Amino acid sequence: MKLSSTARAVVLTTALATSLSLAACGASNEGGNSADSTGSAEQLSGDLVGAGSSAQQAAMQAWQAGFNGEQPDVNVSYDPVGSGGGREQFLAEGGTDFAGSDSALDDEELTQATTRCGDAGVFELPNYISAIAVVYNLEGVDDLNLSPATVAGIFNGSITTWNDPAIAADNPDASLPSTAITPVHRADKSGTTKNFTDYLDQTAGDVWTAGVVEEWPTGGGEAANGTKGVIDAVKAGAGAIGYADESQAGDLGIAKIKVGDEFVAPSAEAAAAVVANSDRVEGRGEHDLAVKVNRTTESADEYPIVLVSYLIGCIQYDDQDKADLVKAFAGYVISEDGQEAAAKNAGSSPISDELRDQAQSAVDAITAGA
Rank of each mutant, 00 (worst) to 15 (best):
S5Y: 08
S5T: 15
S5P: 05
S5A: 11
R8G: 02
R8H: 07
V10L: 05
V10Q: 13
T13P: 08
T13I: 06
A17E: 15
A17Y: 00
A17I: 13
L20D: 02
S28F: 03
S28H: 12
E30K: 01
S37K: 02
S37H: 11
G39P: 00
S40K: 14
S40L: 14
E42F: 09
S45C: 00
D47N: 09
D47F: 09
L48S: 07
L48Y: 10
S53I: 12
S53T: 12
S54M: 04
Q56W: 13
Q57H: 10
A62Q: 12
Q64E: 12
G69E: 07
E70K: 07
V74F: 02
V76P: 10
S77I: 03
S77N: 06
P80N: 13
G86K: 00
R87L: 15
E88G: 09
Q89V: 09
F90V: 06
A92K: 14
E93V: 04
G94S: 00
G95R: 05
G95K: 02
D97W: 04
D97V: 00
D106G: 06
D107F: 01
D107C: 03
E108F: 10
L110F: 00
R116S: 02
G118D: 10
V122L: 06
F123K: 08
L125F: 14
V135P: 00
N137V: 13
L138A: 04
L146Y: 15
I154N: 07
I154Q: 00
F155A: 01
F155N: 08
N156Y: 03
G157S: 06
S158T: 15
A166G: 03
P172E: 12
A174I: 04
A174D: 06
P177V: 03
S178G: 13
A180E: 11
R186M: 10
R186D: 01
A187H: 03
D188A: 11
K194A: 09
T197D: 07
D206V: 11
V207A: 12
E215I: 15
T218D: 02
N225Y: 05
T227G: 14
T227P: 07
V230C: 01
A233N: 07
K235C: 10
A236P: 01
A238D: 15
I241W: 04
G242A: 14
E246W: 07
G250E: 01
G250K: 08
K256V: 02
F263S: 13
V264E: 09
A270G: 11
A272H: 09
S278H: 08
S278V: 08
D279V: 08
V281Q: 03
E282Q: 10
G285D: 14
H287I: 05
D288C: 07
N294L: 10
R295P: 08
S299M: 00
E302K: 03
V306H: 01
V308Q: 00
G313S: 00
L325V: 06
L325T: 10
L325P: 07
F329H: 00
V333C: 15
E340I: 13
I351R: 02
D353M: 01
L355P: 01
D357N: 12
Q358A: 10
Q358D: 08
Q360K: 01
D364M: 06
A368H: 12
